[in-house]
Amino acid sequence: MCLLVPDISVGRGFATYVKSTGSNFYGTHKTYLHSFPDGRVVDANRYHIDALPEFIKYIHEKWIPENAEKYFKARDPLALDYLPKLLGTRGELIQ
Rank of each mutant, 00 (worst) to 15 (best):
Ile59Asn: 00
Lys19Ile: 09
Val41Cys: 10
Gly27Gln: 06
Ile56Phe: 03
Gly22Arg: 08
Phe14His: 02
Tyr26Cys: 08
Gly22His: 02
Phe36Glu: 15
Ala79Cys: 05
Gly39His: 01
Ser20Pro: 00
Tyr32Ile: 07
Ala51Ile: 04
Ser9Cys: 05
Ala15Gln: 10
Ala74Gln: 15
Glu54Cys: 06
Glu54Ile: 08
Thr28Ile: 01
Asp76Arg: 12
Val18Glu: 01
Ala44Lys: 12
Ile64Thr: 04
Asn24Met: 10
Pro37Ala: 09
Ile64Tyr: 01
Tyr17Pro: 01
Phe55Pro: 02
Glu61Tyr: 02
Asn24Ile: 12
Ile56Gly: 03
Phe25Gly: 05
Tyr71Ser: 08
Arg46Glu: 14
Asp38Gln: 07
Gly88Gln: 04
Glu69Ala: 05
Glu92Gly: 02
Lys30Ala: 12
Ala51Glu: 05
Glu61Gly: 03
Pro37Arg: 11
Glu92Leu: 11
Ile59Cys: 09
Phe14Val: 07
His34Arg: 15
Gly91Glu: 02
Ile59Asp: 00
Leu3Arg: 14
Thr89Ile: 10
Leu86Ser: 01
Pro65Leu: 02
His48Glu: 15
Leu86Arg: 06
Ile94Gly: 01
Thr89Trp: 00
Pro37Ser: 09
Arg90His: 11
Asp76Tyr: 09
Arg75Trp: 10
Ala74Asp: 13
Ala44Cys: 11
Ala15Ile: 07
Asn45Lys: 11
Val42Asn: 03
Ser35Arg: 14
Tyr58His: 04
Leu33Ala: 14
Phe72Thr: 02
Met1Gln: 11
Arg46His: 06
Gly39Pro: 06
